[in-house]
């Protein structure tokens, strides 16, 4: 089985989809000849032509608006927003249009648009190449939100997103685009949306994260194991709709949990996860659920390494739940 990084896995999934489904069409800034600024669409322009891999003018509202029109017409557009920090000119098209089209037309017009966009910090990108705006979109009914953490899931979940009819915001953790490597089958396969994955089993504290933070909680779990603390590591993978069963089961079992994301803490997705868990496993909890998140500040440049949650901070939170 070949080894791929996330970029290669995404590229591989796109190639499979483009070959299998002639109605698939990729559009975005620099996705054609250049193959995308992160090379996710590399080679696709040569293989599928400029009518199906479209270099658009520099206008995110146009990219998403046009993708909606293509989907309404019966195509399967796969727009790319170069950085999720650049998604906001298209916010209206995503929130007011894409997510509501099926509902507002009484089911007449599903909009199978899969928006791919790199997300998160860790590449020294400052305010505008580092943000994690997922909560804004999870808060938008009608839109599914997916953030894979490894190449296998990236390919399988992208293909799964492309094979169902709801709009999906597919956010790719750019920090681990190349760093995360693993075995990925060449063939076509899907990973079911809405299912979390227990990455590591443990019986004292449940650690929950998604995207680039999964490797951080794995590292924290390993460090905890060295000092005799057993942690269960859960990769949420799909944030809307998220897998309540898996996390409820784990937290009910362990009675302690730490929620980690790099987006700012206040009104971050962790707030929803924690509340849902309190509603379901209050009786099993031995300590308040801890959150380790990005700070409620704009994403910094020079102090990026301090801003991002790391294994030490997660470990601190693990101790806190145990010392409660």
């Amino acid at each position: 089985m070949p080894t791929m990084n996330i970029i290669q896995a995404v590229n591989n999934a796109l190639r499979i989809q483009m070959a299998a489904e002639p109605k698939s069409i990729i559009l975005g800034e620099d996705v054609g000849k250049f193959g995308g600024v992160f090379r996710a669409t590399s080679g696709l322009y040569d293989e599928f032509g400029e009518e199906r891999v479209i270099d658009t003018p520099l206008a995110e509202a146009g990219i998403i608006g046009a993708a909606i029109g293509m989907a309404v017409y019966g195509m399967r557009p796969i727009p790319e927003i170069q950085f999720s920090d650049f998604i906001f000119p298209a916010f209206d098209q995503i929130v007011n249009e894409l997510a509501k089209f099926r509902y507002r037309s009484g089911g007449q017009y599903p909009c199978p648009v899969v928006i791919r966009t790199p997300v998160g910090g860790g590449i020294r990108g400052g305010h505008y190449h580092s943000q994690s705006p997922e909560a804004l979109f999870i808060h938008t009914p009608g839109l599914k939100v997916v953030i894979p953490s490894n190449p296998y899931d990236a390919k399988g979940m992208l293909l799964a997103s492309l094979r169902q009819d709801d709009p999906v915001l597919f956010m790719e953790p750019k920090k681990i685009y190349r760093a995360s490597r693993g075995e990925v089958p060449e063939e076509d396969y899907t990973v079911e949306l809405g299912k979390a994955k227990v990455v590591r089993e443990g019986n004292q504290v449940t650690l929950i994260a998604y995207g680039a933070m999964v490797s951080v909680i794995e590292e924290a779990a390993a460090k905890a194991a060295e000092i005799g603390i057993s942690c269960e590591v859960i990769d949420l993978r799909t944030l809307m709709p998220f897998d309540i069963e898996t996390i409820t089961e784990s937290v009910s079992k362990n009675g302690r949990a730490v929620m980690v994301h790099e987006a700012p803490q206040t009104c971050g997705f962790g707030a929803e996860v924690c509340t849902s868990l309190y509603e379901r496993c209050m009786a099993h909890l031995e300590a308040p659920i801890q959150r380790v998140c990005g700070f409620d500040t704009p994403f910094p440049y020079s102090l990026e390494h301090e801003y991002l949650p790391n294994a030490d901070r997660v470990l601190g939170a693990i101790r806190k739940t145990l010392e409660w």
Binding site: G62, A66, M70, V72
Partner: peptide, 10 residues
């Protein structure tokens, strides 16, 4: 407007 254009591009 961009939606109509997207349909036309399709």
């Amino acid at each position: 407007i961009p939606q109509a254009v997207g349909t036309a591009m399709g």
